[in-house]
Amino acid sequence: MDVLVLIGRILFALLFLGSGFGHLAQRAAMAQYAQFKGIPMPTLAVPASGVLLLAGGLSVLLGVWADLGALLLILFLVPTAFLMHAFWKETDPEAKQAEMVHFNKDIALAGAALMLFAFFAYTGDDLGLTLTGPLFSLS
C-alpha cells in the first residue's frame, strides 16, 4: 500500500508544483489575469499563491507533514474556485461552461486534498515512504 500512496502523492502533487512554478515564472501575465478577475492586490496575490502551491505540493510529494501540505492546497483551491471561476457571473454560454468546469475541478481537488489530510492525520506514522509523520492527529 505504501507504494500506491506514494504514486498517488506524486501524481497529485505534480499538478500543484507545475502551477506554483507558473505563478512565479509568469507573474506579470498571471497578475494581469487575476486583476481582470477582480482579485485584490494581484501582483502580491499571484506570487503568494505560487508559494502556497509549491509548499503544499512539495509537502505532499515528499511526505513532510503531508497533512499540513494538503491543508495548504485546500487553502488555495477553495478561494480560487469561488474568486477565479465564478461561472454564475458569466453570461456567455461557452465562458459559463468553461468556468464551471474549472470551478468543479478546483472543488473536486479540494475534496481529494481533504481526504489526503484525513488519511495522513488518521494513519499517523504507520504510513511508510514519508519523511516525517503528520503534524495533526485525528486518531
Results as ranks from 00 to 15, higher is better:
2 D>G: 15
2 D>A: 13
3 V>Y: 12
6 L>C: 13
7 I>E: 09
10 I>W: 04
11 L>W: 01
12 F>G: 08
13 A>H: 00
13 A>I: 02
14 L>Q: 11
19 S>H: 07
21 F>L: 09
22 G>F: 11
24 L>N: 13
25 A>K: 09
28 A>F: 00
29 A>T: 12
30 M>H: 12
35 Q>S: 14
39 I>P: 00
41 M>W: 10
42 P>M: 01
43 T>I: 03
44 L>T: 02
45 A>K: 05
46 V>R: 07
48 A>T: 04
50 G>W: 03
54 L>F: 05
55 A>Q: 08
56 G>F: 06
57 G>Q: 02
61 L>G: 09
61 L>A: 10
61 L>R: 05
67 D>T: 02
70 A>I: 04
70 A>D: 04
74 I>R: 00
79 P>T: 03
82 F>T: 07
83 L>G: 04
86 A>C: 09
88 W>K: 11
89 K>R: 15
91 T>S: 14
92 D>E: 14
102 H>S: 15
103 F>E: 02
104 N>W: 02
106 D>T: 07
107 I>M: 14
108 A>I: 10
109 L>N: 08
112 A>G: 15
112 A>E: 07
112 A>Y: 02
113 A>P: 06
113 A>C: 02
113 A>W: 03
113 A>Y: 02
119 F>W: 02
120 F>K: 05
122 Y>F: 13
124 G>F: 02
126 D>S: 15
126 D>I: 11
126 D>K: 13
131 L>R: 00
132 T>Q: 03
133 G>R: 01
133 G>M: 06
135 L>Y: 10
138 L>G: 11
139 S>M: 08
